[in-house]
Structures are given as C-alpha cells and as structure tokens.
Design a protein around this nucleic acid. Structure first.
Lengths: 332, 332
DNA sequence: GTGAAAGCGCTAACAG
DNA sequence: CTGTTAGCGCTTTCAC
C-alpha cells in the first residue's frame, strides 16, 4: 500500500509550485521552456499521474463516460460497446457500463448512478423506449439505435438505415420469387423495427405485390425460442409462406432450425433473411443471408460526436443514418 | 445545468452541521433519532445524493470496481460480466469495463487507468497470462478462469472444475464407444485448457485407452474458423478419428460444420463435445453436447469475495473450484 | 513566468 | 449528541 505520489511531491522535487506543475500538465502555457522540461522529467521519473478524483472534484468533470445498454450478452450490442470503449479509451476516457436488461426500473437507477458519478457524458445503446429519462444536469448524450423518450431537447441520434435494410431484405427474397414473406419483428414496435417493417412493405410495393397484413408478426420476446415456436405454429397451422424476414439474426436462426426440424428445405422451399450480421449468422450450418449494420462506424461516430458535445462544440447535424448492406449467404 | 445540491445545502436546510449530515448518511451513529429523521426527510425532499468524487477524494476510495476482460463479444465472458455487474450494482458499486482484446500492452495501460481512477477493487476475467501485473497500490482483486501472473501474493482465484469438465467430456465419448478422440485446444496452454487436457487424459486412462499424443491439437486462435480449418485439414489428411473434444463451443461448432460440409455424419460417425454451454451450442441445427460452467455462481462468488477483501475481512479460502456438468445434446 | 491561496464536496479527528 | 476544522489532490484566479 505504497503512498501515491501527488502533484505536491512533484512540485517540491522540481522546485516549483503546484500551480506551475498543474499548468505544465494541462499545457495551459505561462511557464518557461526550461521549467516545462524539468517538471516533465520529474513526472516521468517518478511515474506520476494525476489523481482523477481531485481533478474531477475541482473541475466538476470526470473522464468517465456512461454507456447504457439493454443486454451485454447480445453480440450486436457487445460489439458496439467494444467499439465505443476502444475509441473512448484512446481519447483518455474510461467507460462505465450499465446493463439494464431492458428493465426500465433498473435503467432509471443507472441514470441516477451515472449522475452521482458525474460522468462526462453518456451513450445510450438502445434504451427501453418506455422510460422517460430524467437528465437534470444536462449531461451530454448520444443515442444509438432507438429513438429515446427523454425530457431532453436537441437529441443526437445515430441509427442504421433500417428502412433500407428492410427494403433490401424483402427485395432479395422477392427477386428470388418469394411472394408470401413472413416478417418476424418486435411487438413493441421500436423505431428501428418499425422502419424495417416499412422497408419491407416498400419492397413489396416496388414488386407490385401487396403484403398480407397477417404476415407481419410481432413477437413478445426477441429470442431464438420465440421465433422457433412461432414458425412451428405457422407450419402446424398450415400457413403457406415461402420466405421469412427476421428482424434479428437470432430470430432468423430460430426460424431456420424450426423449418429444418419439420423437413422444410432452406432455401429451396423457404428463404430467410436476418438482420445484424452477428457471427452466428455466418457460422451456422446453413449460413444466413442478413443485413449488415456497420458497428465500427457507429462506435466511431458516437464517440466523435459525444466528445464534441463534451467540449461544447457545435454539432452540425443531430441525426445520423448509417448505410447498411445485404450480405448474401445460403438461405436465399 | 442546474447546480447540484450539496451536503452543505442539506445542513443549512436541516439546521445542523455538515458533519451531522455526513454521519446520518453514513449511519455512523452519534446523532439523535430526531435529527436523523429531519435530515433524511430533507435529503429526500431535495433529492440529494452525495457526490462520489468528494467522498472518494476524502476517503481515497471510490465505489467503482474495474473489470478486466479479454473479449466482451465472447458470450461466455459477457455473461460473467453481466453477473458480476448485476451483483456489484446491488451492492452499490459501479463497474468500469476494460476490454483488453487479449492485448498485453492494452491490458497494462488499463491497469494504470484503473489505478488512476482509484477503483476499490478489480475483477480479472481471464487475463493474458503473459502479462506481469503491476499492482503497487495493493488494490483488492479477484481472478477468474486463468491463473494470473502477477507480482501480488495471496491471490484469490476462482475457476470451474476444468479437470472434471475435461474428464466428463472425454468420458461421454468413450462411453459411446469412441476410441480416437481429437482434443482441440489453445496452443498457449492456459491453466484452464491445461486442466481440461489432463481430464481428457484421465478419462482415457479410466477406460484403459492411451490417447494418441498427436490427437491433442493446439490452435493458435480460438475461433470458429480455426477449428473449421483444422478439422478440414484432418479429414483431407486422412486422419482417422471418431470424436472431437473442443475446449470451446465455438471450436465445437467449427468442427461440426466442417464435418457436415464433408458429408460426415454427427453423431453417427464422429461425436463432438464442446465447452462453456453458450447459447449457440444449444441453438445450432445439431445441438452440441457441452460442459456447462456455472456463470451465475461464479459472478456471485467473485463479487462476494471482492467485497470481503475491500472491507478488509479475512478470507478463509483463496482458491475456489466450481462444479461443472455435462449437458447432453445431439452430438453424442 | 511564477506562487499563494481559495475551494470543489466530503469525512474524520477533536473538542465540547 | 453536535459543531468546528483540517485537508484529500487538484485547478484557477489574482497578485507579483
């Protein structure tokens, strides 16, 4: 339990005042080239690094960013976290991770905690839309994936082009000749899923076909099992369909396994397109055609915007749509 | 940007000194039932919550725990993080996540940052064994999964019973009649993988068979592709085998897809057992038999131990081995 | 160019 | 039981 070396020690060692050391550290000017060198050398020699708590207390700023995410075990979110955290770390920030498990109550408490810890900013990855965020201290924030419901104005929001994704997915199957395409989605109709649905409808219109409304199926849970059970139900109820657009790769996989278990051939009899391009879609026995979201770009942009907000810079655009692409594999 | 209410405001409002408010907040006694009620009421009324920075600076303690993990997108690690974070949050701690990407250099820098931020403790999930951790301030730490190489003595370490897992896996296949079982593992021979290997050998011995040394294959990378390529190579080189024990579910899946792509029937011709029981093993088209690690228990125990360490309590045991179990599915 | 000093919000002696 | 006070490590006026 060795004592940490503080700015005072450095000052004494360098024969200057703490003020000067502070100036040198923060590059605030008003010191001679000579002292700068000396102070820097001593700092290095003694492996000194400033105590973030003292600094934070004084400046009322920490170098910590809160990141709120509904489910860290979801690979798609995990990859966003990874990107965000990587970029943040490079910029000298640390990341406080808050896993809300899609639980509004938990999410609310996390926001309090982030506030207590005086985070410099927040990145919301797909929060639950039903939560009204209270953000009294006006902490800068960037939202990703789902349009938030918050008391804040001037929301900075990033999402993939979900509409285009939905359109591409349906188009791919329509091109292959499908005419009865099931759309498996989230019954909560979050903004992202809603847009995908609209893209799905648009594609149909472009092909001059009117999608059966009953083919748009809202699941109460986004999971393998939910999709599996639903598809089994469809088959057993003798519903005729020749394509499934699953608004998540896990749903696509659930569908695929359900079909295969009933002896239905994919892609010969039924085609499938997923969404997100998580690794499972590539590595299952029948690799799934899916829509890729550019996670890297998302993470970079989010961090870039957040840091600008923190620095009080003006942001030219508040709303960003990132391009998606169709990844063609074996289910179409 | 409303001004935060501080302990001073509460003191003034309640007509007491800040010291008294502090005592009430921390339950340090030495105040009357009467003042306690009043202070608590005012706190609630004004929605006050103490500034963690001031507190941390003063006590030289934060309520933050650093969690170092090699790959957050690995579902197994993500689940541990989830559990750890959940339990930590309940106990009033926040979690600083450090994703090292198995990069020793990055890991080192993360340790510095954790130190700068004066975390109260650290949980290491499977760090890279080649890194010598420097932990000058003696921050309490709990290690999980891989035995660390650190300057610290008195390491608190938790792992699954990897030996038993390896034994169960091999035993399962031997029971099914397999006699030529490939073991796909990490060439770096981390403690966990090493133990699984020993279990694998033990099981063979119990069945009176001597495993071919060439069947123990160290992969330079733990991924679907690595396993896929290796198994393809084995098949093309005409190596005869009737079972694969993959020390990770992703390796098992890669093996499975490789076999199927060559028209080899699983489990009829070759049996497979994986490790970790991540969701992919359950949900692929041929569900994979695997060894389950009890992630929930791991997370709980890790947090429990860490909090004890932080509170300066003595820990009776330094080394914990958690039971594993065979989850029988369709590949055996 | 540099230093002295105030103070960020909080806790912990110490004195009463 | 309660208040006064010193100071945690740092930044930032303000003077010189």
């Amino acid at each position: 339990m060795k004592k940490q070396v503080t700015i005072k020690d450095i000052a004494k060692l360098a024969g200057v005042s703490v003020a000067t050391v502070s100036r040198v550290i923060n590059g605030n000017g008003r010191y001679s080239k000579d002292t700068e060198e000396r102070v820097l050398r001593i700092i290095k020699e003694h492996n000194y690094s400033p105590n973030m708590l003292g600094k934070g207390l004084r400046t009322n700023k920490t170098n910590t960013i809160g990141i709120v995410v509904p489910d860290i075990t979801n690979e798609f979110f995990a990859r966003i976290i990874q990107e965000v955290e990587k970029n943040l770390f490079r910029a000298g920030y640390t990341t406080l991770v808050c896993n809300t498990s899609e639980n509004p109550e938990l999410e609310k408490r996390y926001l309090e905690v982030l506030n207590l810890n005086r985070v410099s900013g927040t990145i919301y990855i797909a929060g639950d839309t039903r939560v009204k965020h209270e953000e009294p201290r006006g902490i800068p924030a960037v939202y990703i994936d789902r349009w938030p419901s918050t008391t804040r104005k001037d929301i900075v929001f990033i999402e993939s082009d979900n509409f285009e994704g939905g359109r591409l997915a349906a188009q791919e199957m329509l091109k292959c000749g499908c005419r009865r395409i099931i759309f498996l989605t989230d019954e909560r109709r979050t903004s992202a899923h809603q847009s995908r649905c609209e893209g799905y409808i648009r594609a149909h219109r472009e092909f001059g076909v009117v999608p059966d409304e009953r083919f748009i199926i809202g699941l109460s849970e986004i999971s393998f099992d939910a999709a599996y059970n639903e598809v089994i139900r469809l088959i057993d109820n003798n519903v005729k369909f020749d394509g499934i657009f699953a608004s998540t790769d896990w749903l696509a996989l659930g569908s695929l396994v359900a079909l295969e278990s009933r002896g239905i051939k994919v892609p010969e009899q039924v085609k499938i397109v997923g969404f997100d391009n998580i690794s499972i879609s590539k590595h299952c026995s029948t690799p799934i055609t899916t829509i890729n979201q550019n996670v890297t770009q998302m993470g970079e942009l989010a961090v870039d915007l957040l840091l600008k907000l923190i620095d009080g810079k003006e942001i030219d655009k508040k709303y960003y749509v990132l391009p998606v692409e169709l990844v063609k594999r074996s289910t179409t």
